[in-house]
């Protein structure tokens, strides 16, 4: 009897410790982070994504984050971790971010509104505009604006496209099925885009990406 009560006391103690620890871990996820920590992480993001979040063209194009939908960024960061979206660099970046840090960062980037970098070829902008607004019904390409919004600002998990870096959009539309939806065990909203990306020709991809690169 004495042994049992000691044992149950022991278990109770363990439970208490485990619960406190769990509580703390959860707190760490949602509690306020210091302004300095957020600033340091923002500087880190902006080193590659541009001082105003406008994007940057290195060896690889780093996408514009300015004005981006917080839910889209949040979903993509999770996609890197879950290997739905393959990118070794962003996989590591995403691992080092707590949920409350993600919330702080995405809120910050959503409010930025620098001019687009532009840079896409200007000779087929009209075609890009047509595809964006009306799609290519004969090629089974829906109007981009149907989901991404008439001003290409996106909503929730659907990204803003306006002002996105020209080489980035080209790369994404060209490599969609090689980069996204890579974890068969996990549902991925990127599946919606698969048929569209396959139905677009390379010159149509260039036209639409160029049009978006100038859109404010």
């Amino acid at each position: 009897m004495k042994v049992t009560s000691l044992q149950s006391l022991f278990y109770a103690a363990i439970f208490a410790i485990v619960f406190t620890a769990a509580g703390r871990a959860e707190e760490r996820g949602t509690a306020a982070i210091s302004k300095q920590e957020i600033q340091a992480k923002l500087d880190y993001c902006k080193t590659c994504h541009g001082l105003s979040g406008q994007g940057y063209r290195g060896y690889y194009p780093m996408p514009r984050l300015a004005g981006q939908q917080p839910k889209y960024i949040e979903n993509q960061l999770r996609a890197f971790i879950e290997r739905r979206r393959m990118n070794p660099v962003m996989f590591n970046v995403a691992h080092a971010l707590s949920p409350s840090m993600v919330a702080a960062l995405t809120t910050y980037f959503q409010d930025l509104n620098p001019n687009p970098l532009g840079g896409g070829p200007q000779d087929h902008l009209a075609l890009g505009k047509t595809i964006f607004e009306q799609g290519l019904p004969e090629a089974n390409v829906p109007a981009c604006s149907a989901c991404h919004g008439p001003d290409a600002k996106g909503q929730n998990e659907i990204p803003r496209l306006a002002g996105q870096l020209f080489p980035y959009t080209v790369k994404e539309l060209t490599n969609w099925s090689k980069e996204r939806g890579q974890n068969g065990a996990k549902d991925d909203t990127s599946a919606i885009m698969v048929p569209t990306t396959h139905n677009l020709t390379q010159s149509q991809i260039v036209a639409i990406s160029a049009y978006l690169s100038y859109l404010k």
């Binding site: 880190y44 290195g58 060896y59 690889y60 660099v89 080092a96």
Partner: peptide
Amino acid sequence: PESNIVSCLVC
């Protein structure tokens, strides 16, 4: 990433 040091490779 923990120390906010960026990848050199991307550029």
